[in-house]
């Protein structure tokens, strides 16, 4: 796999819930080593799109290529097997367990049927070191004693523990203060710098401008545009989100009128 071939490519994705047509012919490209921001107004279809990628829903039609090969993803396990991990917005951590236990939750290492704590602790520590995490006092700390940012860090570290190739983060900074947002964004950046493909959903344009390499904007279930961050500025992303177009990028007016959006 070369750095300039996409790790994930979606073409012409459609998804309906009953009569509600949520995703219309959506295309998305995610490059390894890059952060792809996925933006859009409430209800634009962001969560639906990533749940489809993660195998929680199946798409109705469209092509799903992972590392250049057509992939069938109908179950979260299929996505995990490909190397896709999701960090959900509502953190999926157990407060009563420590950091190591949480990172290996459901996939514990065993030796002769018993938990191999030593191996798990070493791997967890190595992963955190690899991400230059500096804020945890001990990997044997209970998660209940961690701050919101530290928890998010653990959730992200868990996603990269499994030699994952692509990590999807659904609003990872939504509940965080300034300093902790900074920490998590740094971490997101490092994931990409380590060669992973990263999809970042965010409603915060400052975050997007700071950390993303490319931005994909959904507008009423259509992919308004996917552009390099260098080609747009803050206000044009806002226009893309609210109107589906900005200057000559985005859905052109007559397209939007003839589409089945209205």
């Amino acid at each position: 796999m070369t750095a300039d071939s996409p790790i994930l490519e979606l073409k012409g994705i459609n998804k309906s819930f009953g009569a509600v047509h949520v995703l219309h012919d959506v295309d998305l490209t995610v490059m390894p080593g890059q952060v792809t921001a996925l933006v859009g107004d409430n209800g634009a279809g962001k969560s639906t799109l990533i749940k489809g990628i993660a195998g929680i829903y199946s798409f109705d039609s469209g092509d799903y290529f992972f590392e250049g090969k057509r992939a069938q993803v109908h179950d979260p396990k299929d996505a995990n097997a490909l190397g896709i991990e999701v960090v959900y917005q509502d953190l999926a951590l157990c407060d009563n367990l420590d950091v190591v236990h949480n990172m290996f939750l459901g996939r514990e290492e065993t030796k002769a049927g018993t938990l191999d704590e030593i191996d798990m602790e070493k791997r967890a520590t190595d992963t955190l070191k690899g991400l230059s995490v500096r804020t945890l006092k001990s990997v044997r700390q209970q998660v209940s004693s961690l701050s919101g940012g530290q928890r998010q860090t653990v959730a992200i570290a868990r996603a990269v523990l499994w030699n994952s190739k692509m990590v999807i983060l659904d609003e990872p900074t939504a509940a965080l203060g300034v300093a902790q947002t900074e920490q998590v964004l740094n971490l997101v950046r490092r994931l990409a710098d380590n060669g992973l493909g990263v999809i970042l959903i965010s409603h915060n344009m400052n975050d997007v401008m700071q950390v993303a390499d490319s931005v994909a904007c959904l507008y009423l279930g259509q992919m308004a545009a996917q552009v390099q961050i260098s080609e747009v500025d803050h206000s044009s992303i806002v226009e893309l989100i609210t109107m589906g177009r900005s200057g000559d990028i985005g859905i052109q007016l007559d397209d939007a009128l003839t589409g089945d959006v209205a």
Binding site: P76, K77, Y88, L91, A92, L93, C94, D95, N96, L97, H101, L105, G106, R107, E108, T110, G113, T114, L115
Partner: peptide, 24 residues
């Protein structure tokens, strides 16, 4: 304390939804 089963018991008691997403 020492088996995956035991660990999963604590996990389910701590956060059942997180455990389900973790494949338990």
């Amino acid at each position: 304390g020492r088996t995956p089963f035991g660990r999963h018991v604590y996990a389910v008691g701590g956060n059942a939804e997180a455990s389900r997403r973790a494949g338990i």
